[in-house]
């Protein structure tokens, strides 16, 4: 690996100052599970790593009336070990459970997953589905941006030099809502999503009609996508095959995947439709307060 410097600031302000000072040649280090690998293979060569994983603000994991706050450096195992996440933000728990193996989950964070900005990131579709908002701190103050607007291309995002993702905030969950994430991978674990789908649905009190839905898609375009039209097509519709099929078709519509070693373009488009339906069905079951029959990875 190339030589670099390592800094371990103790406040967010200090971290931002360091980030700004190195003007683009510094990288924040949280769990490092993507960053260290990319540095080892030479894809990234920052001069300085700024270790942000011990900063308090990036380790917040709490729920209040406004919703859920997940610090950008909170590792996956804490997220899926959290009661609120497990009961209300299940798509996020589903994602965090299948990012790498257990060892990776000890270190990897959703902030890192987002900042790495891979098209196939497993937590991003869930964050989109759950309406996540990125809280970004920078030299000129804080700003917020929806998760679906964060990534701008493979490995690229809206962060300006000196800016740091501090947390992702999720709105409080309405009644009768449920969410789920799953992906298609050739193995059952330790794999990159060929297609990943996160969805959140809110049903009416009868549990038979959609009030609203949000769907996030991974690995089918240069960035994770918010399938807005697909989600909106469900609002006010009854829960049935027809409405699900319509949403799946709308999701397939926006898929523009590539062919690579993980799957062909045609395969990915087909699977997008299949998974959108399956994930919606699971989210519906959860919205009704029932358990889904789901074998991780299958």
């Amino acid at each position: 690996m190339h030589a670099f410097d390592y800094q371990s600031p103790s406040t967010v302000a200090e971290a931002i100052e360091l980030m700004a000072k190195h003007n683009g040649s510094a990288r924040p280090l949280a769990g490092g599970t993507d960053l260290i690998d990319q540095m080892r293979v030479g894809r990234l060569a920052p001069d300085v790593l700024i270790d942000v994983k011990k900063l308090d603000e990036l380790n917040v994991l709490s729920a209040d009336a406004a919703g859920l706050h997940v610090g950008a450096a909170v590792p996956c195992y804490r997220i899926y070990g959290d009661e609120t996440v497990n009961s209300q933000y299940t798509a996020l728990a589903d994602s965090c459970h299948i990012i790498g193996g257990i060892q990776i989950q000890s270190r990897a964070s959703i902030g890192g997953n987002l900042c790495n900005s891979g098209p196939a990131a497993d937590s991003t579709p869930s964050m989109i589905a759950l309406g996540g908002v990125c809280v970004i701190a920078g030299p000129s103050g804080s700003r917020e941006i929806a998760v679906e607007s964060f990534c701008t291309g493979p490995g690229k995002n809206v962060l300006e030099p000196g800016e740091l993702l501090v947390e992702v905030r999720f709105p409080a969950r309405p009644a009768n809502s449920g969410s789920h994430y799953r992906r298609m991978i050739p193995r059952n674990e330790m794999d990159i999503a060929v297609v990943g789908v996160g969805a959140s649905v809110t049903l009416d009190d009868s549990g038979q009609n959609f009030v609203s839905a949000r769907i996030g898609l991974g690995a089918i375009a240069a960035t994770p996508l918010f399938a807005e039209a697909a989600g909106e097509s469900l609002a006010g519709q009854p829960v049935n095959d027809e409405s699900l099929e319509k949403a799946a078709a709308a999701a397939r519509e926006i898929a523009s995947p590539i062919t690579d070693m993980r799957g062909t373009r045609e395969y990915r488009i087909h699977v997008t439709g299949v998974l959108v339906k399956r994930v919606l069905q699971a989210a519906i079951v959860r919205a009704r307060g029932e358990q889904i029959d789901y074998c991780r990875g299958h």
């Binding site: 390592y6 371990s8 280090l29 490092g32 599970t33 260290i36 690998d37 080892r40 293979v41 790593l49 270790d51 994983k53 590792p75 195992y77 790498g100 193996g101 257990i102 060892q103 990776i104 000890s106 270190r107 330790m190």
Partner: peptide, 29 residues
């Protein structure tokens, strides 16, 4: 493998299993 995909370098760090190939020694302070 040196990229976190085989688990041969697993150690327990502060009570959690980690792949030590993806941890910098300086992070272990």
């Amino acid at each position: 493998c040196s990229n976190g995909n085989c688990g041969a370098c697993t150690v327990i760090m502060d009570g959690r299993p980690v792949v030590s190939c993806l941890v910098l020694a300086v992070e272990a302070e």
